[in-house]
Design a protein around this nucleic acid. Structure first.
Length: 489
RNA sequence: GGUCGGUUGGCCGAGCGGUUAGGCAGCGGUCUGCAAAACCGUGUACAGCAGUUCAAAUCUGCUACCGACCUCCA
C-alpha cells in the first residue's frame, strides 16, 4: 500500500509527507509523565495519540522504536531557586523514599495505559538512570561555549546560543520578546539572563535526590533528560518527537537548543503536539486542580462524574476529536461517545454473523480508500470514524436484508474493520469472560428458556415480566430472529 | 501586555472556496405480540459587521467573546 501519510510538523506549521530518515526504521520519542501523581484524562491524550501513530506506523510496515520517558528527577515545582523537585516533595509528604514514589506512580500509570489499550513503548527510560549521560551532554554544551557555571549551577546561555542559532524557532518566539516578557523570579541572580535555563542544579542540603558531578553535588535540569535519552536510544537525528502542546515552550524549545548546542545540528525531523483536554473550557491540569484521574473516570468516583466511563469509551471519546483540536470534557459528550462506541462494537460482532450473497450492492473498496485517506491526512481519526460508521450502516443493512454482500467484499469488509478498529484505533471489545459473568449467562439462558415457552403460549404477561425484571437488574434483552441477545447496561 | 489558536445546529465534533461529515439526543415511518435494536426519512448551523469572488463556515479586514503558552503542567 502506498505510503501517503502526512503529518503536521510544528516546526514548519504545515502538513508534510512523512518520509523516514532511515526506512524501514522509524524513531519516535514522546514525553512521558512525571510520576508524582495519578494520571488524569489529560495524560490520556498524548498516550492515545501517539499510540495511534505507533500502531499506524507499524501497520504500514515500519520498524518503529518508540521511546517514552519517565521523569523521575529534575522536574521542579517552580523555576525559582527554592523550587522543590516534584518527586522529592511528594516523597517528603508521604514519608517515602523518592524511588518508592516513582515506582508507585509508574505502576499505576502503566495499569491505566494498559486499560486504555495503549501498547507499551519499546523503551521507557528513566531520567534518574541516565545521570552520567546527562552530565556528558552538559560537558559537551559547556565545551561548545553555550553553558556557564554559576555557584554550582550550570545554566544554558540562551543569548549566546541565539547569536548563532535561533532560540524560539519551534514556538515562534523572539528572544527580545522573551526578554521583555519573562517574569522576574526570586533567587535567579546567578543567571546571566532570566530565560537561561538550568542544565544542572546544585543540591541544597535538604535535597534528597542528589548525585556527584564535576560541578558539585546536584541534580540535572528537567529539559535535559529528553535531549539526552532520545539521542541515546534514537541517534543524533530521528524522525518524530511528540508531546503535549503545553510542552512546546519552554520544554521542547530547550530540547532543541540543547541538541544543537551539543551536536551542532537539530535532532528531530517532525515535531508533533497534541492539544489539551479542557473542562468547562479550561485546560485540565495539575496546577488548576480541575483534573479527573483515569481511575476516577473508570470508577465514577468524582463529583463531576454522573457515571463511570469505561476505558474504551474514554479512548473512543479522545479519538473522535482530532488530536490538534482542544477537546472539552462533559458528561454529555462522554455518554454520547459511550453510545457511539457500543454501536460500533455491536456492528463489529454483527459482522461475524453476516450471510454471504451472490449479489453485491455495497462498495467496500471505496470505503477502504476513504478510511486510508482519513488516517493518512495527519491522523484524522474523526473522519476515519465517520467512514467507519458508514461501514456500520452497511453491516446493519446487510443484517437487515436491505443490502447484499458477496464473499469477496465481505472478506474485505472484515479485514477493513479488523485493521482499523482493532489494530489502528486500538479499540477492543469489553466482554467480561469472568466465571461470575459466565454463570450469569447461564442464569439468563435459564430464564429465557422459561420466557420462550411463555411466548410460544402467547403468555405476554409472563414474557414481559421476565424481560422487565432482568432490565431492573441491569440486563438488557433484545429479541432477534433466531433468539435473543443480552448485554449489561 | 506579547505570541499563537479558536468561536459550527439541543450536545460533542469534522470540513476550511462550489458537492450529505459523523456520533449522541429529537421527530416521523418500517420491522416486532409489545419493547429494544436495526433500517428508511427528517429539522433548527457555521460569533457579528464589512469586503474579495460567478460562488464564502471556508479567503481578507475590523469588532466581540473564549482559550493555550509566556512559571510547573500531557
Amino acid at each position: 500500500m502506498e505510503n501517503k501519510l502526512t503529518i503536521y510538523n510544528t516546526l514548519s506549521r504545515k502538513k508534510e509527507l512523512f518520509e523516514p530518515i532511515n526506512p524501514p526504521f522509524v524513531g519516535l520519542y514522546v514525553c512521558g509523565p512525571t510520576v508524582y501523581g495519578d494520571a488524569h484524562l489529560g495524560h490520556a491524550r498524548p498516550a492515545i495519540t501517539f499510540d495511534l501513530l505507533f500502531r499506524y506506523l507499524k501497520f504500514m510496515g515500519y520498524r518503529v522504536r518508540y521511546v517514552r520517558n519517565i521523569t523521575d528527577v529534575g522536574h521542579l515545582v517552580n523555576d525559582a531557586d527554592e523550587g522543590e523537585d516534584k518527586i522529592a516533595k511528594k516523597a517528603k509528604l508521604e514519608q517515602l523514599e523518592p524511588m518508592e514514589v516513582v515506582q508507585f506512580y509508574s505502576n499505576r500509570y502503566h495499569k491505566n495505559m494498559e486499560q486504555l489499550n495503549t501498547l507499551p513503548p519499546s523503551i521507557e527510560p528513566h531520567a534518574s538512570g541516565h545521570i552520567i549521560e546527562q552530565q556528558e551532554l552538559i560537558k559537551q554544551i559547556i565545551e561548545n561555549g553555550f553553558a556557564y557555571e554559576s555557584e554550582g549551577n550550570i545554566y544554558f546561555d540562551v543569548e549566546r546560543y541565539n547569536q548563532k542559532y535561533h532560540y524560539g524557532k519551534l514556538s515562534g518566539r523572539k528572544i527580545d520578546e522573551l526578554f521583555a516578557n519573562t517574569r522576574e523570579l526570586s533567587g535567579q541572580q546567578e543567571k546571566r539572563n532570566p530565560f537561561d535555563f538550568a542544565l544542572w542544579k546544585k543540591a541544597s542540603p535538604e535535597h534528597i535526590m542528589r548525585w556527584p558531578s564535576p560541578w558539585g553535588v546536584g541534580f540535572p535540569g528537567w529539559h535535559l533528560e529528553c535531549s539526552c535519552m532520545s539521542q541515546k536510544y534514537l541517534g543524533e537525528t530521528f524522525d518524530i518527537h511528540g508531546g503535549g502542546l503545553d510542552l512546546q515552550f519552554p520544554h521542547h524549545e530547550c530540547e532543541i537548543a540543547q541538541n544543537v548546542a551539543a551536536q551542532g545540528h537539530e535532532a528531530v525531523k517532525y515535531w508533533m503536539h497534541n492539544n489539551m483536554v479542557t473542562i468547562n473550557g479550561q485546560k485540565m491540569g495539575k496546577s488548576l486542580g480541575n483534573f479527573i484521574t483515569l481511575d476516577q473516570l473508570f470508577t465514577g468516583d468524582n463529583n463531576v462524574l454522573e457515571q463511570a466511563y469505561s476505558p474504551m469509551t474514554v479512548r473512543f471519546f479522545i479519538l473522535q476529536a482530532h488530536y490538534r483540536s482542544p477537546l472539552d470534557f462533559s458528561n454529555e459528550a462522554l455518554k454520547a461517545a459511550e453510545k457511539g462506541y457500543e454501536r460500533m462494537m455491536a456492528a463489529v460482532s454483527q459482522l461475524n454473523r453476516l450471510k454471504v450473497s451472490n449479489e453485491n450492492t455495497v462498495d467496500i473498496a471505496a470505503l477502504q480508500e476513504n478510511c486510508f485517506e482519513a488516517i493518512n491526512d495527519d491522523l484524522n481519526t474523526p473522519i476515519l470514524i465517520a467512514h467507519l460508521f458508514e461501514g456500520v450502516r452497511i453491516i446493519n443493512s446487510i443484517a437487515a436484508g436491505t443490502e447484499k454482500i458477496n464473499a469477496e467484499n465481505l472478506d474485505m469488509l472484515k479485514k477493513l474493520f479488523h485493521n482499523f478498529v482493532f489494530d489502528i484505533l486500538g479499540l477492543k471489545g469489553e466482554e467480561d469472560s469472568s466465571a461470575s459473568n459466565q454463570a450469569l449467562g447461564k442464569v439468563i439462558d435459564a430464564m429465557m428458556n422459561i420466557r420462550k415457552t411463555a411466548r410460544a403460549n402467547k403468555d405476554w404477561a409472563t414474557s414481559d415480566s421476565i424481560r422487565d425484571e432482568l432490565k431492573n437488574a441491569g440486563i438488557q434483552i433484545k429479541d432477534t430472529k433466531d433468539g435473543y441477545e443480552w448485554s449489561l447496561e
